[in-house]
């Protein structure tokens, strides 16, 4: 892990009318880091992530991703990141292979690159036999792993994962995190939101958002020490209890 910041955020804010979804958050993420972005429902995680991905225009504050400004260079950012949204977003009526080919194609990858890498990825996912099946017919766990592989297929520097393991069984979650570790080992910076506190323990550093603000940011072990807690679960509960808003 180098000391170079690939994401730096300073006072980033998003308002929807009078509602402040993200309230002056500041942090840096280093290259190759697994950065956990925690918070209760409605804390503003997804909004913050969408601003960093160039999907949502910030109201104020500064942020650069992969060295590009989120206000003016959002399309350059998009070339350098991968993104896996909360909603499953592969095409269910396309096959596994066709989905991979489509997304790799619009990132401008060559046919040769696509062909070779598709084979490799399918092998890793043990999906070689399912390559020509419609994605809609796969079980959820497989879909999620495939979505992750598609998100990093074009070899981005950073990948943003928005609750990637929601609704997935523990075994698949474990496998999913193995894939995340492997991607990180290949130098991809991981920016991940999650609700599972055991997953928070896998992260290099963790930030916890409450009501649009970042209330805590450190390694899991330092956070446990700071909040005098035995597990990340307790750290989270102590912080989240202060929350005044929820998604309902």
């Amino acid at each position: 892990m180098s000391n170079e910041n690939v994401i730096s955020v300073d006072g980033l804010t998003k308002r929807f009318g009078h509602f402040v979804a993200v309230d002056h958050i500041s942090f840096d993420v280093k290259r190759g880091e697994i950065f956990g972005f925690l918070g209760a429902n409605g804390a503003g995680k997804t909004t913050a992530m969408r601003m960093l991905c160039g999907l949502s225009l910030p109201t104020e504050g500064k942020a650069t991703v992969a060295g590009f400004d989120v206000y003016t260079q959002n399309e350059q950012i998009k070339k350098n990141i991968g993104y896996m949204s909360q909603k499953f977003s592969l095409y269910e009526n396309l096959t596994v292979k066709e989905n991979i080919r489509f997304y790799a194609g619009i990132y401008g990858k060559s046919d040769q690159f696509i062909r070779q890498k598709t084979e490799k990825v399918l092998e890793q996912l043990h999906l070689t036999n399912e390559a020509d099946k419609l994605v809609g017919s796969l079980p959820l766990g497989w879909k999620q792993k495939l979505a992750f592989s598609v998100a990093i297929f074009h070899e981005p520097g950073i990948v943003f994962l928005d609750e990637p393991t929601g609704g997935v069984d523990p075994v698949t979650r474990r496998e999913f995190w193995n894939m995340i570790y492997e991607a990180a080992a290949n130098g991809i910076t991981i920016f991940v939101t999650t609700h599972y506190m055991d997953e928070a323990e896998y992260c290099g550093r963790v930030s916890i958002m409450v009501d649009g603000r970042i209330e805590a940011l450190d390694t899991p072990s330092m956070l446990k020490q700071q909040f005098d807690a035995a597990s990340m679960d307790q750290v989270f509960l102590k912080l989240a209890r202060k929350a005044e808003r929820s998604d309902n």
């Binding site: 350059q76 998009k78 993104y83 977003s89």
Partner: peptide, 13 residues
């Protein structure tokens, strides 16, 4: 509706 537009929008298309 199905959310794929988000995935398209995050590409440099």
């Amino acid at each position: 509706e199905i959310g794929t537009i988000e995935q398209i929008n995050v590409t440099p298309i």
